[in-house]
């Protein structure tokens, strides 16, 4: 009876596969653990920077500081003036300077053309007037719908009132290159009507949630 070498048996491939898996999974686990904190910090920093960018102008004009300094030291600015308010159903950040509540920054979400989108909207103390808006996560078409992140589109919302009386303001879209004739018109993105409408719908839905929460809280 001749003996088959171990490498020819059925056990060898199984053993080999287990060893290879353990080695590589081990390497990846170590690598992930060592950079986990850095990845988390990157994400937090990007998020905080976004909030600071949206509210820096308001803080700057209240304290007579320079907006660019506040943004450059975004982490300090965030620590000093911005606090998370956990009592809200939407993630909410309260901007306080010299004892006054200057702005509320809400994390809101809605659906776009291809998937969900998330945005940060900074509201004045009346919780209706938009200080600034930024979509920070979306899955829209690059170059078309994804342009909702661009200055040209998002800065149009500055100073707009989301509530008219007790109801949400109804905004309408006009073609991109046309001038707006009233406060409730927004220039849409050419080739991305559905995405442009999604932003308006998100604001309309979310402002009612924010408003209802205030109504019950008081």
């Amino acid at each position: 009876m001749d003996k088959t070498p171990f490498t020819e048996t059925l056990y060898y491939p199984i053993l080999f596969m287990i060893i290879i898996s353990v080695v590589f999974v081990g390497i990846l686990a170590v690598m992930f653990r060592t950079s986990e904190a850095k990845i988390k910090a990157n994400e937090d920093n990007a998020y905080q920077l976004q909030i600071v960018k949206l509210t820096a102008k308001t803080i700057a004009s209240e304290l007579r500081l320079h907006e660019s300094d506040l943004i450059a030291n975004s982490q300090d600015t965030f620590k000093k003036y911005i606090k998370e308010d956990n009592s809200q159903s939407r993630k909410c950040f309260v901007v306080t300077a010299s004892g006054k509540e200057l702005a509320y920054c809400y994390d809101i979400g809605g659906n776009g053309l291809w998937g969900s989108m998330r945005a940060l909207v900074a509201l004045a103390p009346d919780r209706s007037t938009i200080i600034d808006l930024a979509v920070y996560s979306q899955m829209e078409t690059p170059g078309l719908g994804a342009r909702i992140e661009e200055e040209g589109f998002r800065t149009q919302f500055r100073g707009k009132k989301l509530l008219s009386g007790d109801n949400p303001t109804v905004f309408s879209l006009v073609p991109e290159r046309q001038a707006t004739t009233s406060d409730t018109q927004i220039r849409q993105i050419t080739g991305a009507t559905i995405t442009s409408n999604s932003v308006l719908r998100m604001l309309k839905d979310e402002i009612m949630i924010i408003k209802d929460q205030q109504g019950t809280a008081q």
């Binding site: 990846l28 992930f32 850095k38 990845i39 990157n42």
Partner: peptide, 12 residues
């Protein structure tokens, strides 16, 4: 996955 982790940590 090494590339993915590296990019996430250093080029977010």
């Amino acid at each position: 996955i090494v590339v993915d982790i590296f990019l996430k940590a250093n080029m977010p």
